[in-house]
Amino acid sequence: MSEATASVEDATAEHTGPPPGRGVWQTLRRRPLFWACVVVLTLLGLVAAVPSWFAGWFGQPDPRVCDLSSSAQAPSAEHVFGTDLQGCDVWANVIFGTRNSLSVGLLSTAVALAVALVVGTLAGYRGGWADRLISRLTDVFLGFPFLLGAVVVLTSVGSRSPVSVSMVLALFSWPTMARLVRSSVRSVRGAEYVDAARAMGLSTARIVRRYVLPNAIGPVLAVATISVGSVIVAESTLTFLGLGLRAPSISWGLQLSSAQSYFQTAPHMLVFPSIFLTVTVLAMITLGDILRDTLDPRGR
């Protein structure tokens, strides 16, 4: 690229005012609910990254040290969240379970988002046969009810690691996002600054990366945030059904699954993992909601 075009580019950037990201940040910064979500999610991120910092707070740091003689005991000074059926400390298990639940949510959404961005941009920017092919493909995947689709695939997939479960969930969550990317890319494609960039002879890859994507990515980011929450719920539901992770993995879904049969005598085994699960999902969905409100100009 020659210097002349580069300076023209800078000039056009100056004329369009601050990039759209800055206005969004100004609005977000003033919302207390946004900060509440950020704090909760940062904490959970820390718990997932270094569970050993948190597990030992109440004197039972190891989720795998279990004493069968103290099976399904109600919360006490020794075990603040009580013990589960195997006599393991519920608090330590909840803390160590955070990593699996969060990583399935994040990994699955990241893969789905990446696929959606590539495929959606291709469909929206190229149009033509690529668009038709991709639109029909998303139609087919949207024909699956999310949970039932995952049930069919997971029944036939032998290995159940966090990675394989994430991939199956990603398989059914990319189409919604791809459609969203497609429609926002299409609305940006005809903008004057994109025409201008094309007229200057910039390569397609550069136009897409610098002008189209930054202006089209907002809505899908909000939906992706919400999707992290829904994927975490889906993982725990599948695990609850017996199709997700399996012991000896530690996850909230597994804890809930084993607690279900004993909820009449030992409800604490069910309550504490549920609270963690609900708070995580609540924070994700609320954050996504706030982002969507802020990014959608009609809502401002």
Binding site: G229, V233, S236, T237, F240, L256, Q260, F263, Q264, P267, L270, S274, L277, T278, V281, L282, I285, T286, D289
Partner: peptide, 18 residues
Amino acid sequence: TILAASVPVFVVAVSAQL
């Protein structure tokens, strides 16, 4: 509505049953 959308259905069901 946000709260209702964040609680997994099996948690709702088991709690309601209880």
